[in-house]
Design a protein around this nucleic acid. Sequence first.
DNA 1: CGACCTTTTGAACGTATTCAACCGATGTGG
DNA 2: CCACATCGGTTGAATACGTTCAAAAGGTCG
Lengths: 259, 259
Amino acid sequence: MPAVAQLKTNPARTIFMAQADAPAGSRTAELSCSSCNLRELCLPGGCLEDLERVENIVYARRRVKRGETLFNAGDEFNAVYAVRSGFFKTCVVDGEGREQVTGFFMGGELLGMDGLGSGSHNGAAVALEDSEICVMPFALIEKMAREIPALQRHLHAVLAREIVRDHGVMMLLGSMRAEERLAAFLTNLSKRFVRRGYSSSEFHLRMTREEIGSYLGLKLETVSRLFSLFQKEGLIEVQQKHVRILDAGGLEQILKQGN
Amino acid sequence: MPAVAQLKTNPARTIFMAQADAPAGSRTAELSCSSCNLRELCLPGGCLEDLERVENIVYARRRVKRGETLFNAGDEFNAVYAVRSGFFKTCVVDGEGREQVTGFFMGGELLGMDGLGSGSHNGAAVALEDSEICVMPFALIEKMAREIPALQRHLHAVLAREIVRDHGVMMLLGSMRAEERLAAFLTNLSKRFVRRGYSSSEFHLRMTREEIGSYLGLKLETVSRLFSLFQKEGLIEVQQKHVRILDAGGLEQILKQGN
DNA sequence: CGACCTTTTGAACGTATTCAACCGATGTGG
DNA sequence: CCACATCGGTTGAATACGTTCAAAAGGTCG
């Protein structure tokens, strides 16, 4: 399989390094996964010996400023990315220029797995705030997955989880009413924040109303109205991008109501 | 890795074989992928030597009658399935009992990749007509993927394609109008039929209006109305489940209109 | 043949969208 | 540092699209 051999002669490394801001002297320390508190979100929980090897998957760090793209639709696929800090959206654009936000990604989450089939990315990933990501060259992942079953298993699990997540979004878009969609969205965000040690009840939305709307299949005005409605009902407190959840149970109740 | 060793002592084989209707005497011939005309849809296009090994992935065949489930949400995950003949829908059900059809699968397509992350299936797969599927135990796939890079690559491609497909559905559900959704649906079906050697312009829908509606995020009455509308506009001819596409360009034009 | 399921079609309704105006926050250049 | 332009967000009123409810016809299968 030429993929790994390719890597050695691939200009990718220099490209990555040029974009990575890590001081050359402290590279290994900087790139260490074992010292990263997001470790258990990205990496398989295997034996320590394997972990040492797996750490080397992170090839480089890369900073992506707010508004910049990590990758664009059509870009050659050669790595998946773990969000180290910051916030991303992924979106697809169809032939007619319609844009659909397909997901939001925060620390410890992996993106870029599309394009693994075709060799080029199917969608784009855009930073919604200044972010830092870990670059994991896919050729290397594949090679190590062949040697370390725990990693292979983990890779498959990551891909499958993405599929399950997408099915959840299809459920949301296909059979929920507007209020239910926003309630599900807020509940989901809250749960993901709390897993990362942030408050479950108070957070800053990194995305605009329009981006939320695109993700939820609603217009930005509808999203705005729903925020106001939820506030009026005492479920949340909103001002601009700052959200405080006052009644998490109430939000989940909206979902339970069915239709 | 215990997964493969497990397989030998796993009662799965007998379970599979009990459900498979293949005559015992002709098993190897029956299970041969090289004689299957759907081969290039399921298997990697690699060298012949590897292909021989890969063929052994198909562990058994299994017939699933119309209305029966191939697997249910929550069922233990231990294999992925290739549709050999027939037609399936996959769907997820949320806590509130809402059902969402997440896809339709025809000959040569693979299903069951959800549940690979959690160990149990996230959704259910139901036969929409009497069908036959090839059972590919996942432990075996994982083992062989470690040894045959072409298969590994293929597996990843299959998973990634599923993700890309789901993103397409999210686009459809999130930013298309009802007419566009049905036009996209018919166009997609047509393209898949023609790849399998069937007519691109005339086919039988295996699913009900309600199932189409669930998949497209519409009510069954809306789907029915749209069929009638398309017929009135001379785009298609419908009677019940039989559809003939009269103006494929016109259907694609609906998509291009955007909104 | 009869029971049941699927599909079609109509009419009334409701939810989310569209169009529009306005407000507030943010950021840039004079 | 303020003025102004721009972008994001909120809110109202009218509209449109898809849904709901209902009835009836057409298929299918025991």
